[in-house]
Structures are given as C-alpha cells and as structure tokens.
Computed example of a mutant assay.
Amino acid sequence: MNIIQFNEIIELLHSISDNSTANIIALVSVIISGIAVLSSIYFSVQTRKQYIDSLSPLLSFRLYEKSGYLFLRIENTGQSEATEISLTFKELSNNGEQNKFELDEILKSKLTLYPNETVTGGICRSGRNIVTSIAPVIKIEVSYIKGNTKEKIQFFRCICYTGTNDENVFMKCELEDISRKLNEISCSSNRMANYFEGRFFLKSDVINAYPSSSMYKDLKDAINKTEREEIKENTRDELGNLHIE
C-alpha cells in the first residue's frame, strides 16, 4: 500500500465520520422537535381540561329562618347549568322539639339551575320559642349532572343555620356604602368650587351665591396683570362665620 492509497483511506474515514456526526445531530434535532410537539399537545389538553372544569356548576346552600319557618336556599354560583338536581334529606338536629322535615314540594322534585339562579323552599317549622334557642343543622345528600361535561356528581353536605334571612342587611350595607361615596363626591366638589370661586362655603351651606367673576374675566385679568380685591361678601371668614350681602 503506497502513500496515495493510505491518504485516500484516511479521507474516506474522515468523510464517514463527518456524515455520522451530521446524522447524529439530525437525529437529536428530530427527537427534540418530537418532545416539543408532544409537550405542546399535552399542555393544550391540560389547558382545555382546566377551562372546561372552570365552567362547572357550583351549588351553594344557606339555611335561614323566616316567619317561624326554616328555609333552605340553593344557588348555582358556577358558570354552567346544573340539571337533575336531587336532594335527599337525611337528618335534622338542634331545632328544639321540631326535628321532623316538612318539605315544600319544590324540594321533593328534581331541579335545574342555570348560573346565578336560586330556588328556596321550606323544610320544617322553627323550634325557637321563649325558652328554647336554636342552631339547626341538616344533613343532605346531593346529586346533579354538570352542564359542561354531563358528568354526574354526588356528595354529602352538612348545612348549618345562618340566622335570619339577611338580604335586608346586605341591602342596608350597600346603601350605606353608596351614601358614603356620594358624600365623598359632594365634599370633593365643594372643595373644588371653593378653590375656583375663591370663597369658603361648607358642604352643608345651602346658598345660591351669585358668582363674583368668570373664567373669561379671570383670564383677561391675568393677561392684563390686573389685581382684583379679595371677595368679602357671600362667603365665610377664617373663623367660619358666614357673611351674606
């Protein structure tokens, strides 16, 4: 074997080696791409599943007393309808001598509640009297079909007494909050009016004072560098005394 043949063999081995490296790189690239595609599919499936789960119905229960009777309120606070809602009342306790269910017909039938819909039905007489205080607890079995997946859900609930129907209390709190915000707006408007008018009136002052100037006059005076006397009438002084002319 001469030197020329030996060099040809060396070049051939180098060529094979280079091709093997390229093939390995290509194979690794294919594997990485495949993993990326599978990961994308997996996370897409998981995201879709989580989104569908977020649309599930959610039943909330509240037990309260009104006019000597105990009522159960059911509300769907979820994002889809709950169909074929079935309630099985198991046990009633801590209601004085009244420990037997007297259910309204609506609670005996299967219900359908769409998002934010509610249904209320009486369950028994209140055991409250002069000598007996109550804190009723009911145990029920609930089943329904989820509107988003058509899956049947069954669970057991223990519902505690929440007092009287407090919708009026919630409304009172809302009205108080609205009143407070309106008062804040009124105070802010009064401060702005005092600032622009150059007067001093309290929010409680009911005075239809005639304006002593206007924006046109003020801008004209500012351009002409004209000074005006401070308003002394139809305002309050530094001590808070009201001066009306």
Rank of each mutant, 00 (worst) to 15 (best):
E238L: 08
T47Y: 03
I123G: 12
F201L: 15
Y64W: 15
Y64Q: 13
N23V: 03
F89Y: 11
A135Q: 10
S189T: 03
Y42Q: 07
G96K: 06
I145W: 00
E102M: 05
A222K: 14
L13H: 02
G198T: 13
I35C: 14
F200T: 14
E230N: 06
I223K: 13
K181D: 07
V28I: 14
I31T: 05
R73S: 12
Q5V: 02
T120A: 09
S54G: 09
A26P: 00
V206D: 15
I244K: 11
R128L: 11
N99R: 10
N224E: 11
S20E: 13
T120H: 02
A36H: 04
T162I: 05
S188Q: 08
V142R: 04
I134E: 03
L63F: 05
K100Y: 02
E176Y: 09
Y64S: 14
F156T: 05
Q50S: 07
S179C: 12
L63G: 10
L38Q: 01
R236L: 07
I140R: 06
D205M: 06
Y161E: 03
M215L: 15
E117I: 03
S143P: 00
Q98C: 02
K152Y: 03
K110N: 15
N129K: 15
S60L: 10
V137E: 00
R236H: 05
N241Y: 05
I207C: 10
N2M: 06
V169M: 14
V131D: 14
G122Q: 11
Y161S: 02
V206H: 09
Y69R: 13
L107D: 07
E245N: 05
I32W: 01
N116V: 00
K225R: 09
I24P: 00
S133G: 15
T120N: 09
K217D: 15
N208V: 06
I32T: 04
T149E: 07
A193W: 00
Y69L: 08
S214L: 13
R157W: 00
G163H: 00
L239N: 14
S126Q: 07
S109C: 04
I31C: 04
C124E: 00
F61T: 08
S189D: 08
E197Q: 12
N76F: 07
G121L: 08
S44N: 12
M192P: 02
K49P: 00
F156C: 04
I130Y: 14
T226F: 01
E102F: 01
E233Y: 02
M171S: 08
G163R: 01
R157P: 00
K108R: 07
I134G: 04
I24K: 06
L103A: 06
F61P: 13
E151D: 05
L38D: 00
K66Q: 14
R62H: 12
L175A: 06
V119Q: 15
S133H: 09
S212N: 10
E75A: 10
N129M: 13
F200G: 03
S213I: 06
Y69F: 01
E227S: 14
E84Y: 09
L92C: 14
T162K: 11
C160Y: 01
C158V: 05
V119L: 15
S213W: 07
Y51K: 11
V45M: 02
N76E: 11
N241W: 02
S188P: 06
